[in-house]
Write a protein that binds this DNA or RNA. Structure first.
Lengths: 212, 212, 212, 212
DNA sequence: TATGAATGAGATTTCATTCAT
DNA sequence: CATGAATGAAATCTCATTCAT
């Protein structure tokens, strides 16, 4: 009554707790409402259905995550387009450091939402969100790898390994995020991990033309 | 009536399909029974409850997986106990190759069961099965890493990176398994990946005493 | 297999335990069979259905109980038919003592069966067994009371109190049986109780013609 | 929709009929809902589960019954504390008359509920409600009997008979209630019965020190 | 805005019973 | 004499959702 904003927020908080405890599928809207001190009708005033409620929690952070990545990759592409080989390699590391910091900051600024998204979304439309991110990233890296191969005679791209390395990189972010509550430590570790993974480009992705 | 083996197997097949489509939680026992052409009571003659049915599909393959790992690690420990440093490093690679082949063969020999276990078990008692495997592996690698550090003066173990590398290795198996239907290709790729990850031991896990 | 008698008895024992624990309605035939180490088919070889199984436990003791009472009352009637008033009164007490001993002995000789019958039969055809006994007894006492009233001028029978006193007497037996495990103590107490209740005949049952 | 009070009441009425016909355990919630013209979900809006529905019918009358008894016994204790022997005996009868009237009135004012409670509650949490009442009463009478014995030299309490007499008294109330639909007749008969039972105190409960 | 009431479909599970072998 | 398999109905209960007020 008259306290609409509060109600909506109480619902979101209650939903966060319930989704975190039970997972998307097993979470009960009734219990979410009870936890917010309202009845189901109130929930349906603010949200279309269960999916809409879940989206209200994780949707925007997830969209922003994608926006950040798209933006970063667009910047990268511009730079790479006008680079020679040695500048490029240097840039990859620097670029990685920058985007890593930005992404990790974004993840930790929306800690609860991303925890839900990454560990409790099975059954919702977000259940394949990681695949979506991997695909996005892979598309970019695909272009990047082909560019690099084009500059290096007698070398070609092992697409399978490129895909795997991309996946490992995303998984590394997720693993860090879900196992390390402190943002600074996460960032510091992520840098070491990225340093390591970048070596995989040379080792596994760009390979001699005649390799199996 | 009278076609006992068939019925149980039809139930398992129908269950496999339903679990694969909907995931453990959303799968409907009614539909599983309908799919097998029997009534719900028949299901309860063969299986105690939903969890028992799911376990009948994934339980044994999972247990064997753990048994294979335990056996492998026990063998390794015996060998490592009587090795000097250089032999040891050589062995790690060889050992990896061997266990990788065994594990991948086991995974692909129970393809459907492991697909269920790894991607559709949320809500069941197996939902944390990957963590279980990671923990098992990490315990072994923990001992191994300490042994190696003890042989190298002025070096210590970065436990965080050790844990991460273990996780990445397990994830690599899972990623391969869930993205590559051909066992031989999976094995070939896994070998390359392991070769790469093993370098992480030198790069990130054994670090100078004074490193942060 | 070849041990039919044993099986039937094991079923009866298992049934006794299950009925005692859950009551007739909630008792599960499956659990009874499991407890006897056989499958449901075996049960249905020996017993027609659930009711028949229960009857196999409590039926005969109950029938014998009624037979004992019928016999006793028939004897009583013969004696009473040829008695004058004072002999009759004396006989009531003596008769009570005798029948009490016989009944109590019968109850305690079939302790488990009567415990089931008296406390766990709701839902079965025996659920009103106490009423049946009360009615039987009341019919006899009705005739007896009318006889006595006929001998006493200006007195009539208060049928309500007669019915109540009969009920209390039966309840006294049941209360004793269900609260006192030792037959001798039960009998000793029952005698005191009957002595007391018999006074009710003079006090409440045979009343002046003009009483309300 | 919109006829909330009616629905809840229709459910209670339908439940009363079903419980009365089948007993608590065998009563079907489906049939109760059908009888009330609503779906099963509606029932669960008003009541937590089957037990809660049964409690909604019999709980309050039963609680009030206990409250009445507690209040009565508290009053009695105050009076008895300041009485000599002869006043006390007189009081017992008077007190009995008063409480009997109050209790019987309460029982008949909730006729259907108490019928359910006393004859159809097996399987519910109320299945031992009579024992509860007996115990309450027995505790009080225990104290009362000891007081009386203390005033009478060379006399002691036969606790077994005290317990039995208490039980008989409660059973008398129940028997009257379940066999006599008319409140006035029940009360009138109850008075006679109590008069009779009170004699048991002298005959069976307070006995010479040297009695067995 | 929000409530209170109700729907209707569906969930898992248990039951007594049957019957071919 | 007993098994193993299966039926079919019913049980209690929970769910997301709707809607008049």
């Amino acid at each position: 009554m008259g306290e609409s904003k509060e109600t909506r927020e109480r619902l979101l908080e209650s939903a966060m707790a319930e989704f975190a405890e039970k997972g998307y599928t097993k979470a009960s809207l009734r219990k979410i409402c009870a936890g917010a001190g309202v009845t189901t009708g109130a929930l349906y005033f603010f949200f279309k259905d269960k999916e809409d409620l879940f989206t209200a929690i994780v949707g925007q952070p997830f969209d922003e995550l994608k926006k950040i990545m798209v933006q970063h990759f667009a910047d990268e592409r511009d730079i790479l387009a006008s680079s020679d080989m040695s500048e490029l390699k240097g840039h990859i590391n620097g670029g990685h450091d920058e985007i890593a910091a930005t992404l990790i900051h974004h993840l930790y600024s929306n800690y609860d939402a991303f925890t839900l998204l990454l560990t409790k979304s099975q059954g919702s439309k977000f259940e394949n969100c990681v695949d979506e991110i991997v695909e996005m990233t892979d598309n970019i890296y695909s272009a990047m790898a082909e560019n690099m191969a084009a500059m290096m005679p007698n070398m070609r791209v092992n697409t399978y390994m490129r895909h795997w390395l991309t996946h490992m990189m995303i998984d590394a972010f997720i693993h860090l995020f879900t196992h390390e509550r402190d943002e600074q430590k996460a960032l510091s570790n992520m840098r070491k991990i990225l340093n390591f993974l970048v070596k995989g480009w040379g080792d596994m992705i760009l390979i001699p033309d005649d390799a199996g």
